[in-house]
């Protein structure tokens, strides 16, 4: 909607509340060329709702802080342009649903930070050269860079039904941490074996390859195809390959 000066307005339906309850509130604010959803939220915070809670840092898609559900789609608020949304209806902005609500658009994502230390840490082989350094080919490095692009926005965790609907937080580490495990496992220097953990207490078996995680990843990481499926194959190779099984029995 435009007025005479060329400035236009749009309405945003933002979730306001905390763990004890809340409701959507409509805010109409001026919008200008190139604006992203986070800009609109900031304008609303500055002009109409000073105490609005919103988490962000970089406003450049690099830190993974500003995750939310925009018109029902899990996205980074700072990388969602208003001109990509229909503005005839209010734009709904809600917090991520898989995590406990703190306030308004901010959720308690601390579970993720407790999961990470459970993954076996990077364990390099002995250095290749006498000066304590390693030699690696660019091609080997390139293979894992995809996983290392992860900005820990936790949008993939938010959409994964194992967490979102089934709430298996205790048994399943979620797509973000499969990506993390893949980054370590396929690191050219790493020597640790994480397969037993994946199967036993990290629940890779719960993933039924729906690819919802891949579809929301703002970094375009092919989470399911490139990280989870190869990890599942490792589990199969190690545990269900008949020859290997025999080998384990005789050892």
């Amino acid at each position: 909607m435009s007025n005479e000066t060329g400035a236009s307005t749009a309405t945003f339906r933002i979730w306001r509340g905390n763990s004890s309850g809340g409701a959507f509130h409509d805010y109409t604010t001026e919008i200008s060329e190139g604006m992203v959803v986070l800009d609109a939220v900031h304008r609303i915070q500055a002009e109409q709702a000073n105490d609005l809670a919103v988490r962000w840092n970089c406003k450049a898609g690099k830190c993974g802080s500003c995750s939310a559900e925009i018109n029902g789609n899990p996205r980074l608020m700072c990388m969602t342009r208003l001109n990509a949304l229909p503005l005839t209806d209010p734009v709904t902005i809600e917090p991520m649903k898989a995590f406990p609500l703190v306030k308004d658009l901010v959720t308690d994502v601390s579970w993720n930070f407790r999961v990470k230390p459970q993954i076996k840490k990077f364990t390099p082989r002995l250095p290749d050269a006498s000066d304590g350094t390693w030699r690696m080919a660019q091609a080997d490095v390139d293979r894992v860079q995809e996983f290392r692009k992860c900005i820990e926005c936790f949008l993939c965790q938010d959409v994964c039904h194992v967490l979102r609907e089934h709430r298996l937080f205790e048994y399943f580490i979620g797509p973000r941490f499969f990506v993390n495990t893949a980054a370590l496992d396929m690191h050219p220097l790493d020597t640790a074996n994480r397969t037993a953990d994946l199967r036993q207490n990290q629940g890779v078996g719960y993933c039924n390859i729906t690819k919802c995680c891949t579809n929301v990843c703002p970094e375009g990481i092919k989470i399911t195809d490139n990280a989870i499926i190869p990890l599942k194959e490792r589990v199969v190779d190690q545990y269900f390959d008949p020859l290997r099984k025999l080998f384990r029995i005789f050892r």
Binding site: N50, D51, K103
Partner: peptide, 11 residues
């Protein structure tokens, strides 16, 4: 600032 001390951007 309005509101309470919980995650209050204004504060």
């Amino acid at each position: 600032v309005a509101g309470n001390r919980e995650y209050n951007g204004g504060w």
